[in-house]
């Protein structure tokens, strides 16, 4: 049992069903992947815009 499972149940709040918990987990993974891809894309665009000179250290 991890730390999240040991938290007291919040009976007054929104209680998610197993399907909703699964959807939330999938959403989190999708957002993480999207952010990682966006970082990779901006890095690649930066290199492409600067040209091959940046790889040779010529600025």
């Amino acid at each position: 049992m991890n730390a999240i499972d040991q938290r007291p149940a919040n009976e007054n709040g929104v209680i998610l069903s197993p399907a909703q918990l699964k959807a939330r987990r999938q959403r989190n993974i999708a957002i993480g992947l999207a952010v990682a891809l966006l970082c990779a894309l901006f890095y690649a665009v930066t290199i492409a815009k600067l040209g091959s000179a940046v790889l040779k250290g010529g600025g």
Partner: peptide
């Protein structure tokens, strides 16, 4: 709005 959907829904 509070629970959200699965990635496929988006």
């Amino acid at each position: 709005d509070m629970v959200g959907g699965a990635p496929a829904d988006y």
